[in-house]
Design a protein around this nucleic acid. Structure first.
Length: 517
RNA sequence: GGCGCAUUCGUCUAGGGGCCUAGGACGCCGCCCUCUCACGGCGGUAACAUGGGUUCGAAUCCCAUAUGCGCUACCA
């Protein structure tokens, strides 16, 4: 996009809640675009809606941005030449521009009351006609305006929209045209003196010298109004890029009903930010496996925002899971160990392995909700003791290829951290396994007497068991697996026994054998 | 209602007039590998919204229709 001397983009969320994944995606693309073209990335908070905006939401948005690694050049906490960066702090600027527009004759006062307008609108609706403002106050002469203002009649300021059509360029769709009479003379300053969204964005984008407006395509219909304002201001109209929206699996705009829609919840479920970030980028773009492990810098180097698709994409948790697993497997065991320790700490696993295990058994979302509750109440997570941390790192290689999300660690390996325990079903299964008691006692004795405590020795011993006891290997493995863990699904048997440590392994098998007696 | 945007397997997409009996990925199914669960490998299932044009030839161009979404506010 080289025709601009300086590329400057902005991401402008309104702080009415946490950072929605769809918005996160918009922020991402803005960031990538800015970095790719050596431009400036501004974070602007659109908090003109006082009733819905909260400072807490601002903090959350900032946290999410930081977690994704999206650093802004200018914005909250990063002062620059285009500040302030919250709309509520830009009142003087807006007033100045309203003055300008008014003096140049692009604005006129309108004394129509909301009631009158509503009535007109209702009438038009009843007849099945479209409605736009009639322009009744457009031709009021100055004397009358002065008289009514003096009388204290409330009024709004409307834009004198010119005849003709408004055409703008969208990078993804080309020329988009609107007939001007479909927008009517719209309000830009309310009767209480506050200004409306369409004016605020334009003034902000003009004063911030934004060269490219990258936002969701739900803004396409607003764009012609904004273009009219740019023209009235004599300002250069930026390039637009309206990205397709993100939907849930029911083809509706993504919302809380679709489960995880915010980054924090996804990471609490065991997804990695890096993966969520990349996944968000690859929607609306061609998928290539090598992209899975891309870093933010790779994204900047390879992702061409101007080649996105134009139809809405659906957020597919299944594919995200798969990508997460691929990413995990591409990393080293040490890396996985670090991440697991961090994740398990966050979800409170080390403080209560059994309790967290139960919650996790109800599903990743249940776990995420529990984490969210703890975090909003600022409950400090329990850090692992030395033994727990070492055990986690020792197990990491054993579960590495079995994990799709980090949370999968808990059902797969949580038993390592708890005393041996059986559900009635598990015990039943152990009883039903041929030669279980004999297998357990023999194995326990063998392990106790093993010369070297390493995986090959354990394996050799265990593999000698079936012929020695005249049992099928399957039966022997099943008995030992159940006997050491109380579960029928675990990481590899030999490795698990080894990781347990000799004493622990022998003790567990002994306990299990005792239960059968 | 008006205006706008969108429309290829269930999902993400490739495709920009003949290379398409439409390719890849997730999911799903089957087989192989295998101590459970997985990983991995192999194979399979499944789509051009509909109707008209234009053209020797259309998933690709044009027009309608349908469907979805958005805007149509003194919301952002």
């Amino acid at each position: 996009m080289p025709e601009h001397d300086h590329i400057c983009v902005r991401f402008a969320p309104s702080p009415t809640g946490y950072l929605h994944l769809g918005s996160a995606r918009t922020g991402l693309y803005n960031y990538v675009f800015a970095r790719r073209h050596g431009g400036t990335f501004i974070l602007r908070i659109e908090d003109t809606d006082l009733t819905r905006s909260t400072d807490e939401a601002v903090v959350q948005i900032i946290d999410s941005m930081k977690e994704m690694g999206l650093h802004w050049d200018e914005g909250p906490g990063a002062p620059g030449p285009h500040g302030p960066y919250r709309q509520t702090e830009r009142g003087d600027i807006y007033r100045e521009y309203v003055q300008k527009l008014f003096e140049s004759g692009h604005l006129y006062p309108c004394f129509c009351t909301p009631e009158e307008l509503d009535a007109e609108r209702a009438a038009a609706q009843a007849e099945g006609r479209g409605w736009t403002y009639s322009g009744r106050c457009r031709g009021l002469d100055t004397a009358e305006v002065a008289r009514r203002q003096a009388a204290g009649e409330p009024y709004t300021l409307r834009v004198r929209v010119p005849e003709g059509r408004t055409v703008f360029h969208d990078i993804l769709r080309g020329e988009v045209a609107f007939e001007n009479d479909t927008m009517g003379d719209f309000i830009v300053v309310r009767s209480d003196g506050s200004i409306t969204y369409n004016l605020a964005v334009v003034v902000d984008d003009v004063t911030m010298e934004i060269s490219h407006v990258i936002r969701g395509d739900d803004h396409i219909s607003n764009t012609p109004k904004q273009v009219v304002i740019y023209r009235a201001l004599g300002a250069r109209v930026p390039e637009f890029l309206h990205m397709p929206l993100l939907f849930g699996t029911d083809k509706k705009k993504l919302s809380k009903r679709h489960g995880a829609t915010k980054l924090e919840q996804l990471t609490a479920e065991g997804f990695l930010v890096e993966v969520v970030r990349n996944y968000l980028c690859f929607l609306s773009a061609e998928f290539d496996e090598s992209m899975i492990t891309w870093s933010l810098d790779d994204l900047v180097a390879h992702l061409d925002v101007t080649k996105l698709g134009t139809s809405p994409s659906i957020f597919d948790p299944e594919k995200l899971r798969w990508m997460n697993g691929r990413y995990l497997r591409a990393m080293t065991d040490e890396w996985l160990g670090d991440r697991l320790v961090g994740y398990l700490t966050r979800v409170g696993f080390y403080g209560d392995p059994a309790g967290v295990g139960e919650i996790a058994a109800q599903g990743a979302q249940a776990l995420a909700h529990a984490v969210e509750d703890a975090e909003t109440e600022h409950v400090p997570p329990t850090v692992p003791d030395e033994e727990q941390e070492a055990l986690t790192r020792a197990i990491a290689p054993l579960v590495h290829e079995k994990l799709e999300v980090l949370a999968d660690f808990i059902p797969m390996a949580g038993w390592f951290f708890r005393p041996l325990e059986f559900t009635p079903e598990a015990l039943e299964r152990l009883r039903g396994t041929a030669g279980a008691a004999e297998t357990l006692t023999t194995a326990a004795a063998g392990l106790r007497d093993l010369e070297e405590w390493d995986v090959p020795s354990v394996e050799t011993l265990v593999r000698e068991l079936p012929p020695a006891l005249s049992l099928k290997p399957k039966a022997v493995f099943a008995a030992l697996r159940l006997g050491m863990s109380g579960q029928s699904v675990t990481p590899g048997l030999f490795e698990s026994l080894w990781a347990l440590g000799r004493d622990n392994a022998v003790a567990r098998l002994g306990q299990a054998a005792a239960l059968l007696g």
